[in-house]
Simulated assay, not measured.
Amino acid sequence: MSKFEFEPIKKNSLVIELTRRLLDYIFSGSIQPGEKLPTERQLQEALNVGRSSIREAIKVLNVLGILEVRQGDGTYLTKSDSGFLLESIEWGLLLGEKNVMDVIEARKEIEITVAKLAAERCTQEEIEELLVILEKLERSSINDFVELDVAFHLKLADMAKNSVFKNMLISIQSLLRTWIKLVINEAANTDFSYSDHLNIYLAVSKKDQHEAEAAMRAHMEDASKRLIEVIEKKGEGI
Score class of each variant (00 low, 15 high):
S80I: 00
K136G: 05
A160K: 00
N62S: 11
G72T: 06
L176W: 04
E186P: 07
I110W: 08
I133K: 02
I142H: 09
E111N: 07
I58C: 05
E128C: 13
V100P: 03
L182Q: 08
I180Y: 13
V100A: 11
E111H: 03
I127S: 06
L86H: 12
L131A: 12
L77C: 06
D73P: 00
S171V: 02
L154R: 06
T78E: 06
E125F: 13
W179L: 03
D149I: 00
L134K: 08
D149Y: 09
D73F: 12
D81Q: 10
L131V: 06
L117A: 04
L131N: 14
E125D: 14
M168R: 14
E186M: 15
L176F: 08
V150G: 00
Q124K: 13
H153N: 01
S82C: 10
S141D: 11
S140Q: 07
T75E: 11
G74E: 06
K98E: 14
L64V: 13
G92W: 05
E135W: 10
S82W: 12
I112M: 11
W179G: 01
L130K: 08
D149E: 13
V69W: 09
E105T: 11
G65K: 05
L148T: 03
I58W: 05
Q173C: 03
A106Y: 06
L117F: 05
N167R: 15
T113R: 12
E87K: 12
L77A: 08
T178H: 02
N62Q: 07
S163H: 10
L77H: 05
L154S: 01
N162E: 02
N62F: 12
A151Y: 02
I133Q: 04
A106Q: 14
E125W: 08
V103K: 13
L94S: 02
E126D: 10
V150S: 03
L67E: 09
E135P: 04
A118T: 03
